[in-house]
Amino acid sequence: MLTELGDDAKILAGGQSLLPIMNLRLAEPAHLVDISRVGDLMGADEDTTSVTLGAAITHQAIEDGLVPDPCLGLLTTAAAGIGYRAIRCRGTVGGSLAHADSAAEWPTVLTAIGADVTVRSAQDERTVPLRGFFHGFFTTSLESDELITAVHLPRFAKSTRWALEKTNRKEGEFGESMAVAIVSEGSASIWLGAAKDVPVNLAHVETLLADHPADQVPALGEVRDRVAADLDLSVPELDLAQRHRLQIHAVTVHRALSRALSPEVPA
């Protein structure tokens, strides 16, 4: 069906991002394909190493623990932080990934986790790692005849520690910054959302951590310099407003690191 309709069609997978835009007449798709009640997309599977979630699983189902969370509570926490409950009861994980807003929870969180998605068209099915899936503002490697059918999540080792930090000005709003830190024996995965058009891997911060004594949180200034490097920012050239935005990201990352590295504070 998507092949036939081409660019005139939009997939409605909950609609909590699409409907607001349509209500403003900023999007006027000729056809909507509602997949929110397709049974195949609503199931969850698990084995010893991974969990597969159907793309039409709602944030609320994850929040309420109706599907397994192989990430030691990270998924549940991330889901509960999305907008408001009435939004979470309609919005779906697949829909959020396809919408590809880097300020939203799933793109950054699931990328940090190292999740893959299954993408299907009438002819074909492929598995795509989320790292590399997001191309820019609201654009992904999805073709117009493709839809996300499932998300595959690796199980965290028991010793894995994680933190999800969101800085926003009002409860439930999109984050001005969102940092995910996942730390396990000898490795760290640190990602930043809402900073650029796609989730950003904070490779310099990861290196900083690797070079740092275990369990010690680097100073905020150090983190800020590394975040700036990861965002390709030249600090002396920034005006005050831009410096504040960098500062917010740095503090958010620093808070995430503090939580993930602190042995006393449970994540």
Partner: peptide, 13 residues
């Protein structure tokens, strides 16, 4: 021009 960027106090604020 919308409640997404014009922030009103909510129950938490």
């Amino acid at each position: 021009t919308s409640f997404l960027d014009y922030l009103l106090p909510g129950p938490v604020e």
